[in-house]
Write a protein that binds this DNA or RNA. Structure first.
Lengths: 147, 147
DNA sequence: CTACAAGCTCAACTTAACTTGAGGTCAAGC
DNA sequence: GCTTGACCTCAAGTTAAGTTGAGCTTGTAG
């Protein structure tokens, strides 16, 4: 038998390492797509594996499913994404990742310099100033504090 | 009047930028401590500001409150933490941050090299391999996949 | 001494990202 | 042709990290 061109949800789960329920969930959220067999079972094209891999990697670095979905909107619905399509994603996220990396570095250095330094003047502390800048990106507490 | 040595929740909220309800919550979780006035109101010593700053910064980089609480267990309960005490935290987290930074770099490079590359063989793809390693640290989906 | 802003407690609600369970269908091997 | 494991749907449960609201108490400024 020729290897099946389409994957069942179980196969995708096994190969991608995410639970079947999570795949259902991603589909409900519009992150992946499937078509159905005559018996109403999902069948996935191979590029779903790439999508799922990207979803997991992106989540790992703190990107929410909503944000991932937003970027995925730029991918074509009907054809398998081309190199150019993926390149757009890559570019979009590389900026975000660069930003996160620089933040983490600042934090690491801040922890070294400031938490370890024993200074008690939190207002003048670089760590505190750093936090103020981060706060500007809003975590919920900030929204409250600002209004 | 001499400036109050102790802070009320409202003052801590204002100076730290987190909501009063969040401070209550942190206290319930054992992340910060307060003592009470005769009228049952909370009063904080100044080092709570440092603790809250650390909590926020740590959260920003994806450390959960539970993990923060765990590290905070190493701080003394009764005395104000010394330089040495904070140094322990700093060391504990610096390793984690270094790890996260290297992960992010790998991801950024993986996105550049692999997502953009257009290759469709997800099993041999460095991005996919990277994800497998990350999966070992468990996100929930993995627990299911493993059992 | 009285308003009224700030605090207090406790329970319930919120969002994200899934998982679990119930009740029923599909398909592949013996 | 039947059994068994994979699927399906839909609703409800779960965890993290808080927020919101109700009902009641404190403390401070005029």
């Amino acid at each position: 038998m020729t290897p099946a061109r389409e994957l069942t949800v179980g196969q995708v789960a096994m190969r991608s390492g995410v639970a079947v329920s999570a795949l259902h969930f991603y589909e409900a959220r519009g992150l992946i797509r499937s078509h159905r067999t005559s018996g109403n079972q999902r069948r996935y094209s191979r590029d779903v594996l790439r999508r799922v891999a990207i979803i997991r990697v992106a989540q790992e670095v703190g990107i929410s499913l909503a944000e991932i979905a937003a970027v995925f909107q730029s991918l074509p619905e009907e054809r398998t994404p081309t190199r150019e399509d993926w390149n757009l994603l890559s570019t979009a996220w590389r900026d975000g990742l660069d930003h996160k990396i620089s933040q983490l570095k600042k934090l690491r250095d801040g922890l070294t310099d400031c938490i370890g330094c024993g200074c008690m003047s939190i207002d003048k502390c670089p760590l505190r100033n750093r936090e103020d800048r981060l706060a500007r990106e809003g975590t919920g507490a900030r929204r409250l504090a600002v209004r």
